[in-house]
Design a protein around this nucleic acid. Structure first.
Lengths: 102, 102
DNA sequence: CTTAAATATGACAAAATGTTCATATTTTTA
DNA sequence: TAAAAATATGAACATTTTGTCATATTTAAG
């Protein structure tokens, strides 16, 4: 019997799952979308962009930062969030090609 | 103030999140990986390929089917599972380019 | 027609996640 | 230095997700 192929090892699959789980939420995706076009945005700007309440947004941002999806840096009174790795938003192209979401 | 861009509308973001949530699990990813190279596989073959116990595997398969990620068809005693849309596995290319998972 | 093989189902417990609310922290400004 | 603006934190709670186990269903084979 042929051996079934494995492109990723177990550990990598875990990491991939971890990242996907981290972004698999409408608000988080919306945040990524905004950061795809704006490079860096403050929490306040993200509040307006997403329409999400401050505390909840903060929770989302911090989780994404913890998981390595976002980075942040303070600039005076504001904190700017950016994509830790711009490649992540390729997922949007990916999903756009999928008939499942139509 | 500039309007922040929105590539996907809220409804689509929901669907995308739904799909990502569905596949964001190491076993599910492993299933997709196997189906990337084999077109159709029975539950038994997937058991061997993933090393997952029958009942749990079945739960995973059925959820992915419910969410539109997989399809299945009976052939005698076996049930073959296939990708509903092959584009979904592009996510692997996508993630491979991401330094986050290294 | 009984059994075996392959797969699905359903109930349940445990763990993870999402949300809200109240409050804390940090920085700037009056 | 007190108040305001921007953001983070943490507890409490509801919801969802995972995994396990026992059992059901379907089909083929003896």
């Amino acid at each position: 019997m042929e051996k079934l192929s494995t492109r990723f090892d177990a550990e990598t699959l875990l990491k991939v799952a971890e990242i996907l789980k981290t972004i698999a939420h409408p608000v988080r995706l919306s945040i990524l979308e905004l950061l795809e076009n704006k490079e860096k945005l403050t929490v306040s700007e993200l509040m307006k962009g997403t329409g999400i309440e401050q505390s909840l947004l903060s929770h989302h941002l911090i989780k994404m930062k913890d998981k390595g999806v976002l980075k942040s840096e303070r600039e005076g009174k504001n904190i700017f969030y950016t994509l830790a790795d711009k490649h992540i938003v390729n997922i949007f192209d990916c999903m756009e090609g999928c008939s499942i979401i139509k």
